[in-house]
């Protein structure tokens, strides 16, 4: 009913989704949009499935994204991207780190990690951009920067936000000590 863009950032607790959502929130606010970011703290951060919602547009009311509303799902892990498919608009896009992390039922042998998930998503007609964000982050200097590498890739889908504007927001969101590392990871993601 309005022009709001809905982005879900999903992954496994502890993977750094809070920094990714902070960065996106910052960059779109600087651009003059109204924005809401809904995060998960507490229990679910202990290695559970986590989801962060980022919504921006002229006027944003709800902090959450509902089934069939997400324009983008940015996922830090393959299974988690698949888990939130019902939230994705039919013409939505997935940007996913190709890393697979076994959840506890798989570790204990109660379940198997589903096979061919990336293919299955593509077969459903979804635009999937898969990337090895961990490898890019390692190349930049630390596996912890995988989140920013992923955001670099995501940034390519927004023509109206310039590279410079992204970099300014990275500067605002990342401690100076890790700035170079994260900038590098961002570039590697953006150019992947």
């Amino acid at each position: 009913m309005n022009n709001t863009t809905n982005v879900m950032i999903v992954g496994v607790g502890g993977q750094g989704s809070l920094l990714a959502s902070k960065l996106l929130g910052h960059v779109v606010m600087a651009k003059g949009y109204d924005v809401k970011v809904s995060e998960v703290h507490g229990m679910s951060q202990r290695g559970g499935s986590v989801v962060t919602y980022v919504r921006f547009g002229d006027k944003v009311y709800s902090p959450v994204i509902d089934k069939g509303e997400a324009d983008y799902i940015i996922s830090f892990e393959v299974l988690e991207a698949a888990r939130y498919l019902p939230f994705l608009k039919k013409d939505g896009r997935i940007i996913v780190n190709s890393q697979e992390i076994d959840p506890m039922p798989v570790i204990t042998g109660a379940a198997d990690y589903p096979e061919r998930l990336l293919d299955k998503m593509t077969e459903l007609g979804i635009e999937v951009s898969a990337m090895d964000a961990l490898a890019l982050a390692n190349e930049a200097g630390s596996p912890k920067a995988a989140n920013i590498a992923l955001m670099g890739r995501f940034s390519k889908f927004f023509d109206d936000i310039t590279e410079d504007e992204w970099l300014k927001s990275i500067e605002a969101c990342v401690p100076p000590k890790f700035l170079e590392l994260n900038k590098k990871a961002f570039y590697l993601g953006r150019n992947s």
Partner: peptide
């Protein structure tokens, strides 16, 4: 609203 089709039988990921 309707979203993309779900993929069935995905293992859950509880906190640990």
């Amino acid at each position: 609203k309707e979203g993309c089709t779900a993929i069935d039988k995905l293992p859950v990921r509880p906190p640990v």
